[in-house]
Simulated assay, not measured.
Amino acid sequence: MESLARGGTRWKRFAVVMVPSVAATAAIGVALSQGALAASFSVSGQQFKVSADRLDGKGFVQYGAVDSTKAGKKPVAVVGFNEAKIRNLCQSVVVPVPAFGDVTMKLGAGADAAAPVEAKKLYIDADDIGANATFNNIDIGVAADSTSKGPGPNKGDKYSPGSFAQQADSATFTDVKQRAWATTAGTFKLSGLHMAVKKGKNECY
C-alpha cells in the first residue's frame, strides 16, 4: 500500500493530515554511542528551522507528545526513523543577544547527493511542518505503544500509550521545511559539514 500526501500541517491537524515532521532536524547534532537519548530532558525553548531537498527513511513512526521547555510545556508531533538519509540539509537558529541584536547560527551538510547526511534511531519533536511525502505500507490509527515498523516511542517521552499514532515501512520526503524544538539520534553522520555565525536573521527559509 502506498499513500501520498502533499502540503503542510500543524499540531491541531497532525492526526488528520499526518505529514511528518521530517528528520532534517537531525542537524541539531545530537550523536550518542548507544540507542536514542531519552527525551525527558528539558529543552531550551528556542525553536530552530530546518530545510532539506530530500529525505529517505526506513522504519517510520509518528505520535503526539509534550516537551518540557524553560518557557513551559509545548505540544509536539514526534517522528522517529530507524534509518534516514538526508540531502542538502540546512538548520538555522536565531539567538537574541542583549545589547547586540539577533545572531543566526546556520549549519549545512549533505549537499553532495553521493554523500548525504545519515542518521540512525532518529527522533524529531516539531510543531510546524511542510513537505511532499510518500509512505510505503502505512498504518494510520495505531496505538502509540503498539507500533512495530519504526523505532517505537522515544524513552522518556511524555505521551499517552493508547493515543493516535501512525507507522510505515519507509517514507520519502521532498522540499522539506519545518520548525522544531528538539532532536535526538543514536548515530548521526554529517558529510560536508559547514557552520556559519552571522549578525541578523539568515535562516534556512
Score class of each variant (00 low, 15 high):
3 S>Y: 10
92 S>T: 05
169 D>K: 12
80 G>F: 02
137 N>V: 08
126 A>R: 02
58 K>E: 12
32 L>Q: 12
200 G>E: 01
111 A>D: 15
157 D>S: 15
66 V>T: 15
147 T>L: 01
89 L>W: 02
164 F>C: 00
157 D>A: 11
40 S>C: 08
13 R>M: 13
48 F>V: 00
55 L>Y: 12
171 A>R: 12
76 V>P: 03
73 K>P: 07
181 W>A: 00
131 A>I: 07
181 W>F: 03
76 V>Y: 02
21 S>K: 09
199 K>W: 09
92 S>L: 08
198 K>L: 12
190 L>N: 15
116 P>W: 01
153 P>H: 07
163 S>V: 05
19 V>K: 10
54 R>S: 11
165 A>Y: 00
104 T>V: 05
65 A>C: 02
42 S>D: 12
81 F>V: 09
97 V>F: 01
101 G>F: 06
131 A>F: 04
81 F>D: 00
137 N>Q: 11
86 I>M: 09
49 K>E: 15
163 S>K: 01
19 V>N: 14
102 D>H: 05
136 N>A: 10
140 I>T: 04
128 D>V: 06
75 P>R: 06
72 G>R: 03
108 G>H: 09
57 G>A: 15
56 D>I: 11
101 G>V: 02
36 A>K: 05
49 K>I: 08
63 Y>F: 05
15 A>S: 15
167 Q>N: 04
56 D>N: 14
114 A>Y: 05
112 D>L: 10
181 W>Q: 05
33 S>W: 14
107 L>H: 08
41 F>H: 15
92 S>V: 15
145 D>V: 05
82 N>C: 08
131 A>C: 14
1 M>I: 07
179 R>N: 13
135 F>V: 06
90 C>F: 06
93 V>K: 07
20 P>R: 05
90 C>T: 03
81 F>P: 02
157 D>N: 08
139 D>P: 03
64 G>Q: 14
146 S>P: 01
33 S>G: 08
149 K>V: 00
198 K>S: 09
